[in-house]
């Protein structure tokens, strides 16, 4: 019986290995979030084949280690993720189950964007009573274009390291991305002059880098503690604060529940805006930022 099973299992394994598609168009990249998928596409062009694990309708903190994701990580040559514990609930399991050496911690194919920039908002006190906090600091760096620029340089180096035969092309793509991006940064900076210094309320404490870059003041969050849904007592307290000191905008991520934001908006007449926390599928970073800026500037009541 044991021998029979052995034969069956070996046969099936042999068949799948043999049948498995040999086609291999460039580097296989597993991007945890759409922003890194987009950046990898800009810097890698035709040399990369990017799979995006999440969409901008999903909360990257709470993703399940689905079978489909394990299958994708199994075949990846490069992992481009945020790091800093953002994916702690699912990525470690994918890595352990994948049986893939190339993308394990410490390998060149293990690229964590937050390893290459300075993180802000490092909590001074690590205690879970403060909610779902990140020990290494705020990981949502994709909302700061200057940090994206820093990540781009390092990501391009990683691509060259994994695929040295296309070095020149990667370098060219990095130069053109950097020039275009720097011009856009200046343009966005000019565009947003009128809103600088205004106050906003956010749902989750995730917009820190964006607000800091644009000089917006975050005066409160709808969540009393990060990761814990807004409570009614906290909301009513916020209401009285806002009635005394009106703010410009209430911001929430498009994947978040909009009930609390809408409630507060109705009571205070402060407009809300649902911003995409990440680019849409196949959207470029430039296009996504253009949208964000546009939404922040043209607030509809």
């Amino acid at each position: 019986m044991f021998n029979q099973w052995k034969i069956i299992v070996t046969a099936v394994m042999a068949i799948t290995v043999w049948v498995a598609p040999a086609a291999h168009a460039g580097l296989r990249v597993f991007a945890c979030e759409p922003e890194w998928a987009s950046l990898t596409r800009s810097l890698g062009g035709d040399h990369v084949n990017v799979y995006t694990a999440t969409t901008n309708r999903q909360d990257p903190h709470h993703i399940q280690a689905r079978p489909s994701l394990i299958a994708k990580v199994r075949r990846a040559d490069l992992l481009t993720c945020t790091g800093a514990e953002l994916e702690i609930g699912w990525l470690p399991l994918l890595l352990r189950k994948s049986g893939n050496r190339k993308i394990q911690t410490g390998q060149p194919g293990h690229f964590m964007a937050t390893d290459y920039v300075t993180l802000l908002e490092k909590p001074a006190i690590l205690d879970r009573s403060a909610g779902d906090i990140h020990e290494a600091g705020n990981p949502h760096i994709q909302l700061d274009p200057r940090r994206i620029m820093q990540v781009a340089t390092h990501l391009s180096r990683t691509l060259i390291r994994l695929d040295p035969s296309n070095r020149e092309d990667y370098e060219k793509k990095l130069t053109s991305f950097t020039q275009k991006w720097q011009k856009k940064i200046d343009q966005w900076y000019q565009q947003t002059q009128p809103v600088r210094g205004k106050s906003v309320v956010v749902h989750h404490d995730g917009w820190f880098y964006l607000l800091r870059w644009l000089g917006l003041n975050q005066i409160a969050t709808l969540e009393l503690k990060p990761g814990i849904p807004p409570t009614s007592s906290h909301l009513s307290q916020l209401l009285s604060t806002l009635q005394k000191n009106p703010v410009y905008l209430i911001i929430y991520a498009s994947y978040q529940d909009n009930k609390s934001a809408n409630w507060l908006s109705q009571k205070t007449n402060v407009p809300t805006v649902a911003l995409d926390f990440s680019p849409a599928e196949n959207e470029t970073l430039v296009h996504w930022f253009d949208r964000l800026i546009d939404q922040l500037l043209n607030v509809k009541d």
């Binding site: 394994m13 498995a20 189950k97």
Partner: peptide, 15 residues
């Protein structure tokens, strides 16, 4: 021992 096949669909065998 587990083996994950290099396929788009998740396929795992083990003993």
């Amino acid at each position: 021992i587990t083996y994950i096949a290099p396929t788009d669909i998740f396929l795992e065998f083990g003993a």
